[in-house]
Design a protein around this nucleic acid. Structure first.
Length: 603
RNA sequence: GGGGCUGUAGCUCAGCUGGAUAGAGCGACGGUUUCCUAAACCGUAGGUCGUGGGUUCGAGUCCCGCCAGCCCCGCCA
């Protein structure tokens, strides 16, 4: 109902200006113009929209909110466009104006949805605005080379992918970047260690599995922490790498290649498309970062390290920590890489991506890091006008005990194991149900449905939570058939698919659409809200809002389904209800696809 | 010590940027099936929104203090 509410807003503003011309005119001259705001109602009994502004206006206009409401309503009623769209507005409570879209208008809206594959979601038209042609960069997932993907990468991967899908659907050019950890001291450690204990790993890509590499990594880390001599060797190895020593570089490439293959497996299972561009990509630009910061007089050398001291909002420097961009030993660190990345991403091609918006999907523990880096980038004036960068933080994945999710033995949980487990549990749920219902299904069916539900459950559980808080991971809850879960939503889709299967030769008639039940109108209204929700998610970067919407849609549909026969209804109700079913299914499928979730016809 | 995030029903969480009587789901209790997948639906019970102030017509939402939990804080990413 985006365009509708847009029209309404204009009509409302006009009514306000006609009702109180002097007040509006004088307010316009000052900095605070009088505006009436239109909000969706909290409850259906209040109609579709409510105007809350009469209270605020009461003070400046020196009238009671109800009197102001009366005046505005008077002019709204005189507007023929308004009267065509809406029922006569009602004044309620101490001074709310409740607006209800007329039934004719609602049917008009729903009719236009039937022929619109985008279900009312506007397409951001790139040709109109040159800024919009610039890509949005979403930096997400970002595992480390020579390590397996684990729970820690789950949220970033799922949330980042969903945001990317939403931006893509809206028509933006999106760059999905996998900022993998493929550089730094860790490689010095690992390569030095491998040279000693398993040199074949550095020449033969098939010598070891990724899990072996992880083992070697842990050993290397331990040695590094305990043995000063080994620290020296490792640092020298890093320098060799940086100086492009052939042998070291080959070893490094091999490690990356091996990890890449493992990552790909996970991305394929999760149906995630992402372009690798690791930290090492920015190596050639690091020196320039330092030079330019130096030129801008932002750099301070402190205890041998080159850094920028942060300032608070009043430009004060009270004890705020520095962002270190060059270590005492001359090496660069992650802040340097991130700064180089920011600059590269905003710069126009061919030396950059020419992006308009940078979105970083990482855990909230990195908030202060990004604050610091963003501040430096701003002070260095590396952010073009009209462009923005945002950290999209998310909380930890907790176990059911409320502590950081770990295996029983205290190890980090591998992402592949986590997905296996979800699928395994989904399949066993299906088997139990089939037995209970005495249904026969093929192994292929169980396999496919189990996989779809398992992956959907993991993704949906994560996305349906407001990402800023920690989230409690529970197979039982995410696979549950009741509540705000993937199976519940998938089931709604399946129910509709069932109707459409059985009602062969369904022809959705565009001629007559008629409703006369509350359950029909509620469903119709909910269907029409999709566009607003998508725009909101795009703005707030909160996919859980979309989940809430889809869950509510499923609930409303199930209530409708429970009481409104579709196939057995008389015409024109049969076709009209079929329209609702079809659009509900389309909406659920589109919404879920934007979350990266596949649907089923039967389950 | 400094900074950030969080605190809402027994549990897990929403709460659309300050609006009407604070909402879901789970769990508990009770009900619904000759009918499109009951994997559903309906009803009941359950709240001092951590706490104390403030701002205003109006605060879970904004500001200040305090309490509790988690995370970050100079050469790891």
């Amino acid at each position: 109902m985006l365009s509708l509410s847009h029209n309404l807003k204009n009509q409302l503003q006009e009514a306000l200006e006609k009702a109180f011309p002097e007040a509006v005119a004088s307010a316009k001259k000052s900095d605070s113009p009088l505006e009436a705001t239109l909000v969706a109602t909290g409850k259906e009994e209040f109609g579709d929209f409510q105007v809350n502004s009469c209270f605020q206006l009461a003070k400046t206009l020196r009238k009671s909110p109800r009197d102001i409401a009366l005046e505005i309503v008077k002019y709204l009623n005189m507007d023929p466009d308004f009267s065509e769209m809406c029922d006569p507005p009602k004044i309620a409570g101490p001074g709310f104006i409740n607006i209800t879209i007329s039934k004719d208008q609602l049917i008009k809206e729903i009719r236009s949805r039937l022929t619109d594959k985008r279900l009312g979601i506007p397409f951001e038209d790139s040709s109109k605005d040159i800024e919009k042609l610039k890509p949005v960069i979403i930096d997400f997932s970002s595992p480390n080379i020579a390590k397996e993907m684990h729970v820690g990468h789950l949220r970033s991967t799922i949330i980042g992918d969903s945001l990317a899908r939403i931006f893509e659907f809206r028509g933006y050019k999106v760059l999905r970047l996998n900022h993998v950890g493929d550089w730094g001291t860790q490689f010095g450690m690992l390569i030095s260690h491998l040279k000693e204990v398993a040199p074949e790993a550095l020449t033969d890509p098939n010598a070891f599995e990724i899990s072996d590499l992880v083992k070697f990594y842990k050993e290397a880390k331990k040695r590094f922490d305990e043995d000063e001599n080994f620290q020296d060797i490792s640092r020298k190895e890093v320098i060799k790498l940086q100086n492009k020593d052939i042998e070291s570089l080959n070893a490094w490439n091999l490690l990356c290649e091996q990890s890449r293959r493992e990552f790909e497996k996970i991305y394929e299972r999760l149906d995630i498309n992402i372009q690798e561009r690791g930290e090492s990509f920015y190596n050639p630009f690091l020196k320039q970062v330092i030079n330019d910061l130096e030129k801008d007089k932002l750099l301070v050398t402190d205890d041998g390290a080159k850094c920028i001291f942060l300032v608070d909002k009043d430009q004060n420097q009270n004890n705020l920590p520095p962002v270190i961009v060059q270590k005492r030993d001359g090496g660069f660190n992650y802040a340097t890489t991130d700064l180089a990345a920011i600059r590269y991403r905003f710069r126009n091609s061919p030396e950059g991506d020419g992006a308009s918006r940078l979105i970083y999907v990482t855990d909230s523990g990195q908030s202060s890091h990004f604050n610091g880096v963003f501040q430096v980038a701003k002070r260095a004036e590396w952010i073009p006008k009209g462009c923005r960068m945002e950290h999209v933080p998310f909380g930890l994945v907790l176990g059911e005990d409320g502590k950081k999710l770990k295996t029983r033995s205290g190890e980090t949980i591998k992402l592949s194991d986590l997905l296996d487990e979800a699928i395994k549990k989904a399949k066993s749920d299906i088997r139990q149900r089939l037995q209970k219902e005495e249904r026969e299904e093929s192994e292929t069916f169980i396999e496919k449905v189990g996989k779809t539900i398992g992956i959907a459950a993991v993704k949906y559980a994560d996305l349906s939570q407001n990402r800023t808080t920690d989230y409690q991971f529970s197979y039982k809850k995410m696979l549950s058939l009741q509540g705000n879960t993937a199976p519940y939503l998938l089931y709604a889709v399946v129910r509709i698919a069932g109707i459409i299967r059985k009602g062969d030769n369904i022809q959705v008639s565009l001629r007559e659409i008629t409703f006369n039940e509350d359950k029909e109108w509620s469903l119709l209204r909910q269907i029409l809200k999709l566009d607003e929700v998508i725009i909101e998610v795009e703005e707030e970067l909160l996919p859980n809002r979309l989940c809430t919407y889809l869950f509510e849609l499923s609930q409303i549909f199930n209530r409708f389904y429970d009481q409104m026969p579709v196939l057995k209804a008389e015409e024109p109700y049969r076709s009209s209800r079929l329209v609702l079913c079809r659009l509900t299914a389309d909406t659920l499928k589109l919404g879920l696809s934007l979350l990266g979730i596949n649907t089923l016809e039967r389950m």
